[in-house]
Structures are given as structure tokens and as C-alpha cells.
Amino acid sequence: MANVFPAGFGELEPFAGWAIQGERARYAKRVSSTMEELQAFYDVAYPLLERNTAYLEKVTLDQISDEDKYLLWAFCSLVTIAFPVEAWGQPRVPDSGPSSIDAVVEPAV
């Protein structure tokens, strides 16, 4: 089976399902996941944040590979789940009822 992420990020392979393009899709994954799933991804991805940032700073967007896109999207998912893991202890915003986030425009990658 081929790797989804660039060499050096093998720890993330079990979490390839978090490499999601689009803010709406990442939010939907967050609110449909359990805290155990969020925590497991966070525990593996967060320690890689500095290495990921250093790696992606060397990648140009006009030459970005699929593996690099997946890495970028996985770390966008990390941003999406960080506050629920670190502060709320639940996937949804506390006391927010059925509210949701709707991105009108997405960055192009």
C-alpha cells in the first residue's frame, strides 16, 4: 500500500482520513467524530507540528505534490480539532445548539 504522506511522516498514516480538503468537510469530520478519535489524532499530529511546518515552508504551491497536500490538509484538521481537544472536551462548541460554521470562500490549493 502506498503512503499518503511524504517520507518522514509515517506516524500519520493511520490518520490519513484526517487529510481532508475544505473547511466544511473538516468541520463535519470533527463534529461526527468521538473525543477518543479526536484525541488519538491530536496525540500523534501535535508533536509533529514543528517538523511539519518546517517541511511545508520549503514546498512551493506551484509545485506541491499530492503527498504534500495531504500533509497540509491533515494539519488543517489538527487546527480544526485543537480547541475541542484542549479546551472543551467535546467535538462541538459548548452551549451552541445546532449552530455550524459555513465557509463562503475556501483557499485554493
Rank of each mutant, 00 (worst) to 15 (best):
32 S>E: 14
9 F>A: 06
70 Y>K: 13
47 P>C: 05
75 F>S: 09
76 C>E: 13
14 P>K: 00
9 F>T: 05
16 A>K: 15
24 R>K: 13
20 I>V: 15
32 S>N: 14
10 G>H: 04
75 F>G: 10
55 Y>G: 05
71 L>C: 04
16 A>D: 10
28 A>R: 13
70 Y>G: 04
22 G>K: 04
40 A>R: 11
39 Q>W: 00
88 W>Y: 08
41 F>K: 05
66 D>E: 14
57 E>D: 13
65 S>W: 03
29 K>S: 13
46 Y>I: 06
53 T>F: 09
34 T>Q: 01
91 P>W: 01
11 E>D: 13
18 W>Q: 05
91 P>Q: 01
30 R>P: 14
53 T>A: 07
91 P>Y: 00
8 G>K: 02
9 F>G: 03
60 T>L: 08
56 L>W: 02
34 T>Y: 04
83 F>N: 06
50 E>L: 07
37 E>G: 12
87 A>E: 10
33 S>G: 11
27 Y>P: 08
40 A>V: 06
75 F>C: 10
42 Y>W: 10
27 Y>Q: 14
40 A>N: 11
12 L>E: 06
50 E>D: 15
33 S>R: 03
85 V>P: 10
10 G>Q: 09
82 A>N: 08
12 L>W: 09
41 F>Y: 15
56 L>K: 02
70 Y>T: 03
83 F>Y: 08
91 P>F: 02
71 L>E: 07
47 P>H: 02
16 A>Y: 04
59 V>R: 04
86 E>A: 05
30 R>T: 15
28 A>M: 08
67 E>K: 12
35 M>Q: 09
84 P>K: 00
86 E>M: 06
41 F>P: 14
44 V>T: 14
81 I>F: 02
78 L>N: 11
54 A>R: 12
35 M>C: 11
74 A>L: 09
66 D>P: 07
82 A>D: 04
32 S>D: 13
49 L>N: 11
39 Q>A: 08
58 K>A: 12
85 V>N: 01
83 F>H: 05
15 F>L: 08
70 Y>F: 12
68 D>W: 06
77 S>E: 03
39 Q>C: 09
26 R>E: 13
78 L>M: 09
88 W>A: 06
87 A>P: 00
76 C>V: 07
49 L>W: 09
63 Q>G: 05
49 L>G: 13
52 N>M: 13
10 G>A: 07
57 E>N: 12
36 E>I: 05
74 A>R: 04
47 P>W: 01
88 W>G: 00
47 P>Q: 00
23 E>A: 12
26 R>N: 15
84 P>A: 01
7 A>Q: 07
49 L>R: 10
54 A>N: 10
46 Y>C: 11
73 W>E: 15
50 E>H: 07
12 L>R: 04
21 Q>H: 08
51 R>W: 02
14 P>N: 03
66 D>K: 02
85 V>H: 01
82 A>F: 02
7 A>C: 02
25 A>W: 01
45 A>E: 08
58 K>W: 01
72 L>Y: 11
36 E>N: 11
70 Y>A: 14
34 T>H: 03
62 D>L: 04
15 F>N: 12
62 D>S: 10
88 W>V: 00
41 F>D: 13
66 D>Y: 03
45 A>F: 04
29 K>P: 15
22 G>S: 13
50 E>I: 09
50 E>R: 06
21 Q>D: 14
68 D>P: 08
38 L>A: 09
52 N>E: 14
50 E>G: 06
77 S>M: 03
46 Y>R: 09
61 L>T: 07
20 I>K: 07
